[in-house]
Design a protein around this nucleic acid. Structure first.
Lengths: 119, 119
DNA sequence: TGCAATACTTAAGATTCTTATGTATATTTG
DNA sequence: CAAATATACATAAGAATCTTAAGTATTGCA
């Protein structure tokens, strides 16, 4: 089995929105820093979302109506919680479906799996 | 099952080199236009490599010593055949392995599959 | 008390793609 | 047989998305 320390940035490119939307769809409510840490933990450090990539993406998703925010004070520090909207939930489903289909196509194209059937 | 006409460009981003190298590794000798058509056919049009993306990538791979070229005349028209080098073969294997690992990680992260084991 | 972790923001630069344009030959079709 | 389409290459401008970097400030720990 191939072990890799961290994926080349090209690979993760294009999946960031999918990851964020899906995580918020399944977990309900999260703040930015929490997202980076959760993804890092769940992937054993293989996917590390940088802050420079995360926050602009969160802002874009909010502006687009797929996420909503509520600020909360933890002591003196602001924390911005994100929740997914109805529209965001729909987008999340679509993006995951597209990704699943993409994986199937790539597996065939790269000849990774024996082609079982056309189902 | 989800049917999609063509993937959003973000998804394919980052897999172009992997696709090209692997195809040349398995098929031996191909020219640029042939690569675009083969990928289009194999993916039922879901992945369409544009020429603006293909040729610069081929040139970069050649410059990097992963591909070698030989020109051939088909009538009056030049055709540039690409073959993979030893170094390119190694890179192809690495990139495919990384992609397979990436798929596994993403499936877990997106909760697409039931987690069977940690193998 | 100083360093690491938490928590957010934004700007500059790199990479990789799309879109567009250019050139030219070969084939098909009305 | 002329026009449209397909084949075949190349490259430049612009868009999108990420990395790197720099800034600000609070909190926890050794």
């Amino acid at each position: 089995m191939y072990i890799c320390p961290m994926y080349t940035s090209e690979l993760i490119k294009g999946t960031l929105k999918t990851i964020i939307l899906n995580l918020l769809k399944e977990r309900g409510r999260m703040y930015g820093y929490e997202i980076t840490q959760t993804v890092k933990d769940m992937t054993a450090g293989k996917i590390q979302i940088t802050e420079g990539a995360l926050y602009p993406t969160l802002h874009a998703l909010e502006k687009n109506g797929e996420l909503a925010t509520e600020e909360e004070y933890i002591g003196k520090r602001v924390r911005k919680y994100y929740t997914i909207t109805e529209q965001g939930t729909q987008t999340a489903t679509e993006k995951v479906n597209e990704f699943v289909d993409f994986i199937r196509t790539m597996k065939f194209l790269l000849d990774i799996e024996p082609r079982v059937s056309n189902a």
